[in-house]
Design a protein around this nucleic acid. Structure first.
Lengths: 332, 332
DNA sequence: CTGTAATATGTAACCGGTTACACACATAAT
DNA sequence: ATTATGTGTGTAACCGGTTACATATTACAG
């Protein structure tokens, strides 16, 4: 690998001049510039980013913490972050934390040693005091951490309410909820949104709430139990698509006819919801958009640290597919 | 952030001694070592990896190139690579290439400027001469690039043959294939494996081969056309699970009874194959294992560049689920 | 008691860039 | 003619580590 010295020698100038040419910085004579550019081309020279980083104290790298990229919600988010980071000249580092605080801290330290420029966190396990004293910009994505940490999220509560309202509109009279983990804010908010719509209904009972913990397996079991004990249920709102798919499957295996006898709606708007049969009606989150936006805000903070940026919240959108429909025939 | 100088000052030694303590390198008096360690602790000092990298010419980072992390095959692979990289003290960089050679080259250059220590490529678009002169260890994963580049793959051809043999064993008499892209080696090999088993059958016609290009949508269409034109087909081997799921869906929509009338087998062994109904029988690849192994080999090459390492090939394993079964009643 | 090896530590060069500063020269303003 | 300003370039310090080399002291063998 040629260094800046090699270029300087070939172009018969000092390294400072080469640096000026590369960075379009300070005065350089037109002839000199040409000589340097030719030398750069001739040697196929590329500046060493490590040396640059050392001097600047910036690495042009940002990291994304996610619980587990194998959860199909995160690839899209990761993709958005990577694309956007690249667009601004940043390298993207993916960190799977498994919701394990120790792993988070280990990553945090490793990244700080590499002078990472900024971090995007999808976390419900990080402690506020663990990131408060860090002088690297941090943004919470998908899940809020606390009010001091800027976040980009979607309005889960409202989205959940919308989902339940839609089920009502299509004629559902007994709507249950397969909830996510109790310690994940998005899951809590979706549960709240559900409750907002059903709590005052005379048919409502807390027994209509079952925990699937955002997993395929647990949601399947939860649904089996729910529907065996409550065959009167005619609508289920699953807190994410992964569980929605399980609901579909469990219900079908119990002989329920979807959507004629039972409507199912998920949450997230993942591709997954298109490959089942029937396809799964869902509340689509602007996943790519929030990932992209988080990076934009983060980079704004990185490159313009005095500028005050603010948290943003996005809306979900109803995406009607085959697992729900207008059910005129059930009119009581 | 404290530097090595701050530690040296506090411990009343030179920076060289601090460095020796940190790296367990050279002679250090027991008392001195203690003083230094206390100073490190007191200042919560962490060495700057950038400075280290600059001197050593190594970054302790490895990259993984994949076409698109949103394709559900890759998260597991990425996870394996990340876990294993971490285990050996390397940071993991994920690069989505979209099978776009320009993106690959752009990433390659960016990474070389960051003195990346090694690269794992899942690619069918990279040109051999584009990586031949690079003096950074490179390993091909999942797809071979050429015989000079060490690779970790699975035996796709044999796995495909096994899949077709299994369909035969369960009684299928007319077996079709939904193939992957013509320019992807794994897809080509799976097609070959299919042909190995059916080419000499008197019922075989090339019209039983349709291209789904590893995508949900195209596989759906291909299956619809195939089954409409050839209702006699009683077994379909899809070149990956993503397409297998589409086959399932298209066949069901056409009124085929699976598995009684039509058996379907996929390839990959993704979680996806468990959430459909019926669940999808598949040839499970040791995805995590090959990802892990690729990193191990790569790191061996990085840390011990003279050692000769060799390509490795793994076997797939039949994972029987609900989309196939012994069909005694169809005995002719 | 002397020579050699092991222990202990500091100084400074080095990795490959960036940039403050000095200096030279040309041009424009007074 | 003198001074201020703009242009062009090189020298060297700096970023924060690592390590070759020099030097000093101690331990031990002959």
């Amino acid at each position: 690998m040629p260094t800046i010295k090699d270029v300087a020698k070939l172009a018969e100038v000092s390294v400072a001049t080469v640096s000026r040419v590369m960075n379009n910085n300070g005065y350089v004579n037109q002839n000199t510039r040409q000589r340097v550019e030719e030398a750069i081309k001739q040697l196929n020279y590329r500046p060493n980013d490590v040396a640059r980083s050392l001097f600047k104290g910036k690495s042009k790298m940002i990291a994304l913490f996610v619980p587990d990229i194998m959860n199909p919600f995160f690839p899209q988010l990761a993709r958005a972050v990577e694309d956007t980071a690249n667009k601004y000249g940043y390298l993207f580092v993916l960190c799977n934390t498994d919701n394990d605080n120790e792993k988070e801290i280990a990553y945090l330290n490793a990244l700080l040693q590499k002078t990472i420029d900024g971090i995007i966190l999808v976390s419900n396990t990080i402690q506020v005091d663990q990131i408060n004293d860090i002088n690297v910009p941090i943004i919470a994505l998908d899940r809020k951490i606390n009010s001091n940490i800027i976040s980009v999220t979607v309005n889960n509560r409202e989205g959940a309410s919308q989902a339940v309202r839609y089920l009502k509109e299509t004629g559902c009279k007994r709507i249950a909820h397969i909830a996510g983990p109790k310690d994940v804010s998005s899951a809590k908010q979706r549960l709240e949104g559900y409750l907002d719509e059903v709590q005052s209904e005379e048919w409502f009972t807390t027994d209509y709430i079952r925990y699937g913990n955002y997993t395929v397996k647990e949601a399947y079991q939860a649904t089996e139990e729910l529907l065996s004990q409550h065959p009167e249920i005619d609508g289920i709102f699953a807190a994410n698509d992964l569980m929605g798919v399980s609901v579909l499957k469990a219900a079908k295996n119990l002989g329920f006819d979807i959507p004629n006898q039972l409507s199912v709606i998920g949450y997230d708007g993942m591709e997954l919801s298109d490959i089942t049969s029937p396809t799964l009606t869902t509340m689509a989150q602007p996943i790519y958009d929030i990932g992209k936006r988080a990076v934009e805000i983060l980079i704004e903070k990185i490159e313009n640290s005095d500028k005050e940026v603010e948290s943003e919240q996005y809306q979900v959108q109803l995406s009607v597919k085959e697992s729900t429909h207008e059910r005129r025939e059930v009119d009581e």
